[in-house]
Amino acid sequence: MTPKRSTEDLIRALAGQPVPAPWSPVATLGATLGAGALPLALFLALTGVRADLAGAMTQLAVQAKTVLPLGLGGLAGALAFASARPGQRFALWPLALPLALGMALVLLRLGIGPEATVLAEWVGSTALVCLLSITALSALPLATGLVFLRRAAPTRPALTGALLGLAVGGGVTAGYALHCTEDSPLFFMTWYSLAICLVTAMGAMWGGRFLRW
């Protein structure tokens, strides 16, 4: 049998197959949000939302430490979904916007805040808890999202995984920020960012392995 004839046989066989189930972005989003919200709600229920939440939310820095990761997560999620379809064009630069806004807050703090407490604010007292909580709370939604994305067709699996990790890390961080009482941009722009980077790296690693097709 010549190769071309076997290709024609393959085409006939494929045409006889049922249409494969589609990848559903809505289901992926729903499952990932659910898998993220559950452990996060449990965490907040056990450790408690910060007592002064309503009052603190009037401060710009406190708003920023929830809003910025949430915005970053939303952007990254949209890009992760775009990157999961072959041939889609997307730009990564919007991801720099939340980072730029956060850096502006850092500069503002360094410009006008007291100099004596810079180091103490930067190191904080809950940095390790922050890193561990965010990465641990991100594991389940990240794995869930990856399972659903296997139906899609990312032509750059590691990038799609990284973007999903960024989205999940951002979302979880926004929730964790409701618990955390360290309100200096020096703290959260360092440790939240590092935690989100860890989740992103985890996503890139898992994506490169599990999203191949």
Binding site: L14, P86, A153
Partner: peptide
């Protein structure tokens, strides 16, 4: 070629109707 055709079959639902097929196809 047969691997590509098989992939086109398995992932054909990731093409969104209304969009051009070529960029999708070439990426696959």
């Amino acid at each position: 070629l047969q691997e590509v055709l098989l992939a086109i079959h398995l992932k054909r639902q990731t093409w969104r109707r209304g969009e051009p097929v070529r960029p999708w196809l070439y990426a696959i």
